[in-house]
Design a protein around this nucleic acid. Sequence first.
DNA 1: CCGGACTCCTGGTTGC
DNA 2: TGCAACCAGGAGTCCG
Length: 291
Amino acid sequence: MPELPEVEVVRAGLEPAVVGAVVTSVAVLDERSLKRHDGPAEDFIARLTGRTFLAPRRRGKFLWIPLAPAGGEALVVHLGMSGQVLLRAPDAAADPLTRIRIEIAHPDHGLLRVAFVDQRIFGSMAIDQLVETPDVAGDTVPTQVAHIARDPLDPAFDDRRFLASLARRNTGIKRALLDQTLISGVGNIYADESLWAARVHYDQPTSTLSRARATTLLAEVRLVLGRALAEGGTSFDAQYVNVNGASGYFSHSLNAYGQQGRGCPRCGRTIVRERFMNRGSHLCTFCQRIR
DNA sequence: CCGGACTCCTGGTTGC
DNA sequence: TGCAACCAGGAGTCCG
């Protein structure tokens, strides 16, 4: 399940290969992968073919490649649960489960294929208009990303505003962490990891979480995301970026997620998995109690 | 404002 | 061994 670190690795990997490249052809192999696109496949193809890619950008789990001229449209990518963006040589064998294939011509690297591969088809691509952000002058995001909060690794993320909305809200803390309109980029895995690190129970009411503990939690969110990013950033091939979003989360340093039945790395008691919000929540019920 | 239920989807795992 | 049921969940929508 790609979350912020995995999506950022994809963004960074794509950047050198796509900036300045011209789209020479587009094939939509499965139209369901255009569910975020407002229009039929023909419209997607027509609006993308012949365009020049600018530098890829990201907010939370949304990735987009602006199209020249700047400030107009962008190719938006969301990886969903299982999406991958693979860079291939133009004559490479087709990747299984490729849903959209984009051929590009780069002034330095020549012809490349960008394959959008997605097993479960929760992800998608779209062409969308860029709009100005309300908080940073000159900054733009696609319209379908405009309702998402900045992510905690964004220099313009507003800590005080986030903490204030937590205090004002009447909900559980994990719900809040997963609410992309409050803080973006955090998914189920890194939510569990951050809560474990900060010793906070997933259902702790946000209004009763002390300012100090909320501050600690936000710091842990940043540490967890930053650590994952550092691990992922070293693992991709420089020439043909093959960023895996499916097995995508960087699993070698998980303390809570998927660790049910094992010992809590902090106190040794057993990590349990509970159903919450129609998904799994992994925690140490000794370290993480509602207070 | 809030939360629950539902939808999208399919490879891998579990259970009989 | 074979097949069906179940499971994973990001994000959007709808409803009470």
